[in-house]
Every structure is written in C-alpha cells, then in structure tokens.
Design a protein around this nucleic acid. Sequence first.
DNA 1: CTATTTAGGACTATTCTAGTCCTCTTTATT
DNA 2: AATAAAGAGGACTAGAATAGTCCTAAATAG
Lengths: 153, 153
Amino acid sequence: MLRLSKLTDYAIVVLTYMAKNQDGLYSAIEIAKATGVAPPTVSKILKELLKAKVLISTRGAKGGYRLAKTAEKITVASVIGALEGPIALTECSVSNHNHSCEQVSGCEIGGVWGLINQTVFNALEAITLADMLVSVNRRSPQEINIPISSLYR
Amino acid sequence: MLRLSKLTDYAIVVLTYMAKNQDGLYSAIEIAKATGVAPPTVSKILKELLKAKVLISTRGAKGGYRLAKTAEKITVASVIGALEGPIALTECSVSNHNHSCEQVSGCEIGGVWGLINQTVFNALEAITLADMLVSVNRRSPQEINIPISSLYR
DNA sequence: CTATTTAGGACTATTCTAGTCCTCTTTATT
DNA sequence: AATAAAGAGGACTAGAATAGTCCTAAATAG
Ligand code: FES
Ligand code: FES
C-alpha cells in the first residue's frame, strides 16, 4: 500500500496547525488539545521534529515549540524524513555502500530503484506546509483518483 | 522511511527476469532458481501478480506464468498495487467514502493528501518494466541521492 | 522555590509482514 | 487410465515494526 506511518500523518496535522500562526509558540499539551492527538504522542512527534530541525524549542515554564522556518520552506519530504528516516523505498535504495542490498543473487536493478526513489522524493519535496494551508482554506472537495482500485483489503 | 514491502521488491526482480524474454513461459520453480528467491515465496508473489492481471497462467504439466502485456505497459505502480493494494500514503487517502478518515478532530487536510498521493502515483506510473531492463543492461553505477541523510537508524 | 514545560529514553502491546506449508485442481505424457 | 508436473487457494507461524505510554531529569518563569 506504500503507507506512511500514522506518526507522520499526525506530524503533518500538527505542523499544519502550528503553521496557522507562523510565529506562535505552542506547548505540547496545547497542540494535543487542538488536534485531538493524544498528548504523549504529540510530545513524541514534536521531539522528532525538533531533532530534525523542523522545529525550535524553548524549555521551562512558558516554553514550547515553534516552526524553525517559514511554512514555504518546510517540505513534506523533510517531515517524512524526520519521522521515518530517509525516503528509501527498498533495501536496495538504502545507502548501499557495502552492497548489503544484494538480497537476490544476480539482481542488478538497484540503479533503477535509485531513479524511482529520486522521482518519488522530488514529488514529496515539491509540496510544502504552505501548500497544506492553502488547501485547508480552500476546502476543495477534490475527489481522489486511485486507478488501482480493486485490491484494497 | 516510506518503505515498500520486500515482496514488492522481489516482484520487481521476478518480473524483470521474466521480461528478458517477453513471451517466455516460466514455472515458479524455474524463477525461484534463477532469482534466488525462495520457491514458496516466489509462488506467492506470482499468485498475487496473477490476481492483478499482470501475469497469465497455464495450469498443469508444462504450465507456468507469462507476462500479460508487454514490458512497456507494466508500470511499477501496477506492481505495487498488486502486492500492497492501492497506493494510499495515509488513512486519509483511502477511498474515504464514509469519512472514516477523520482520525483527528478538525483535520481538514485530506484534500492535500490526495494531491500528494496523486503526485507519487504519477511518478510510479511513469516507470515501466521496460525501464528496468534498460538500466540492467546499461548497468549505470549512478549513486543515489538521499538528501535527508542523518537519521537512518 | 515551585510550577511548568521540554529532553531523552525505556518499555509494552498490538499489528503487520515474510515466509512456509497443505490440499485441491488442471493438464501433458505415456 | 495412471502418473507426474504445475498452478490455485488459503491457513498458519514466527518475527519485526509500529503506536502509544510512561518515567526521570533538566531548564526556566515568576
Ligand atoms: S535486491 Fe538489491 S539491487 Fe535488487
Ligand atoms: S486525519 Fe484524515 S484528513 Fe487528516
């Protein structure tokens, strides 16, 4: 299904909320209440995003988190990267310096995976938090087109 | 990490092997030997690909599997779809007719997920088995560019 | 000094995945 | 007709990954 983890999903939700006021300082609890995601989970996500430098934190009372850059500069790819590590669709695409990718004897398609990977990455790098906001406002009822349809469990 | 399942990975390997002789008829065991993937696993994958009409089968002695279309018409997206169901990065993107997507109160970004999904899908739909073959022959040593690098476990 | 809030992990339960195996049906061959 | 080769379909298990919780320590405002 090529699924993203739920945490990543939540992360986008959280960031979209924060981006409504770009310079706002939000505490984890505050965000949890606003988004409906459980507090410990929000906290976990915020920490990951901090590590990835998507957010900046202030400790202590009246502390909280804020966006490290403008919404235009925060890409979906970077958020996914923060929560799930680098975008690598297959083992073959993970920094295979020691050729650990050789899962299969005689398989030489690693190069193409690189291409596919890059293509997907570019797609995700092209979409930013700002795009999310626009769509939230527009509230386009846009239906989703999933050509491969019959097989979902 | 936005990972594809191993089975999908193997499927591409298997199909690439089969595509070397477009009209060839291959038994599961034969493919297993050639690719190094365990026989029961190959069998499982072939069945899935059959269900998705990527392959055609002949039963009985001297039976086997063959490609249902030319390599140019078998897209990576369709292979992923066959093994993992439709490409839907998040719950929000899965045919949400009954709004089951409402994971999070007040979350209205579903539409953007649709966009992201579509973008990724287009990228994967643009690459076919034929492209895999070309690259196998060219054997380009092309290094993979993964900008989000530091976080891989 | 105390309340608030982040930092950094450890931990657990549940879900998903990979992989195997069994039984049945179909077909070629002799 | 008998036998062997091969796919069809699905059940099952072990292991891995994920989601989610919780605890303790450190920082800071008031
Ligand atoms: S299994 Fe690694 S390149 Fe194909
Ligand atoms: S949680 Fe479904 S649209 Fe955001």
